[in-house]
């Protein structure tokens, strides 16, 4: 392409346009088209196959009167709230410990982050085995002489979601720790020196100076954890299979089951639209705060 006689019109910059075709197709057909299609068909009575028989909000009424869906939402809320708080707190504490100019930092970091490299299936199965009441922690503690010790989260419908939480936190805190560590390293050394001269205790420096300065990292971490929470699926499938009964169901599993196991596409579409709505409610205010201000 010679600059002097560069062709005008649509075939200007043609190679770049051709190269961008996969991106354009993905953006329009899959992301925009697919999402619109699912939302549209959530208003139909599709069962085994999608069909254009519109029934208004009937699927949503059924969804919100379904016990399984309500349990899924409740589980997601519990799992989400705890995993958000614990991942942030533990992640930050570990990062602060690693930031004390210690020896073997690389070794510690490598150990703390390795679970993140494993799949949720592997994570779920490993913790299913450790929490197995007949062989795992409960069995071992009872063997030590404490006969009445009970710790069987995966077999108790009331606390099963906390058993999943243990595995989820094991998997993700390393990642949050790494993010926080990067944030801490970005804090100017002079801040620390100045705080020391002023005689401010270390914990106060962290709480009132360093953490407010790491606002951006915290927001990234929260968005990251939150989007992971909504997607949680494999972990449940591997660790509990949604059981005992339906006590550890989550929305993502509800969608899969409705679409591919019980041939109830309409329910699957309605449930996935609700998931999308949740993401919109979380992401839009964040995106507005982060990017909205700068554009103006």
């Amino acid at each position: 392409m010679d600059a002097a006689k560069r062709p005008l019109g649509w075939h200007r910059n043609l190679s770049a346009k051709v190269a961008a075709v996969p991106m354009i197709v993905t953006a329009l057909a899959v992301f925009v088209g697919g999402t619109a299609w699912t939302v549209l068909y959530s208003f139909t009575s599709s069962k085994l196959l999608p069909k254009e028989k519109f029934v208004g909000l009937a699927q949503y009424e059924r969804l919100w009167s379904s016990n399984k869906w309500l349990i899924s939402i409740e589980n997601l809320a519990i799992y989400g709230a705890f995993s958000l708080v614990f991942a942030l707190v533990i992640g930050f504490l570990l990062a602060a410990l690693l930031d004390q100019k210690i020896r073997f930092e690389d070794t510690f970091r490598t150990i703390l982050l390795y679970p993140f490299a494993l799949s949720f299936i592997v994570t779920g199965l490993a913790w299913q085995w450790i929490l197995n009441p007949d062989f795992g922690v409960q069995h071992v503690v009872r063997g030590l002489g404490w006969e009445s010790f009970t710790f069987d989260p995966l077999y108790n419908p009331d606390i099963v979601i906390y058993g999943v939480l243990i595995a989820g936190l094991w998997h993700e805190t390393g990642l949050i720790m790494c993010l926080m560590l990067a944030g801490l390293r970005g804090i100017d050394e002079d801040i620390w020196k100045a705080a020391k001269i002023d005689g401010i205790p270390m914990w106060k420096t962290y709480l009132f100076i360093v953490i407010p300065m790491m606002r951006g990292i915290f927001i990234t971490a929260i968005v990251l954890i939150a989007s992971g929470i909504i997607k949680v699926y494999d972990l449940i499938v591997a660790q509990t299979g949604g059981g005992p009964g339906i006590s550890s169901e989550v929305p993502a599993k509800y969608v899969y089951d409705a679409m591919f196991l019980s041939q109830n596409l309409g329910q699957g579409f309605a449930a996935s639209t609700m998931m999308l709505l949740t993401v919109v409610i979380i992401v839009v205010p964040w995106a507005y705060l982060e990017f909205g201000g700068k554009r103006r």
């Binding site: 939302v39 699957g268 999308l276």
Partner: peptide, 22 residues
């Protein structure tokens, strides 16, 4: 298109599962 792509990364996979099946 790039903005759509990045926004699309936030959409739960479940929403696009079935359209992709089709």
């Amino acid at each position: 298109f790039f903005t759509i792509l990045i926004v699309g990364a936030f959409i739960p996979y479940q929403v696009m599962l079935y359209p992709l099946v089709i």
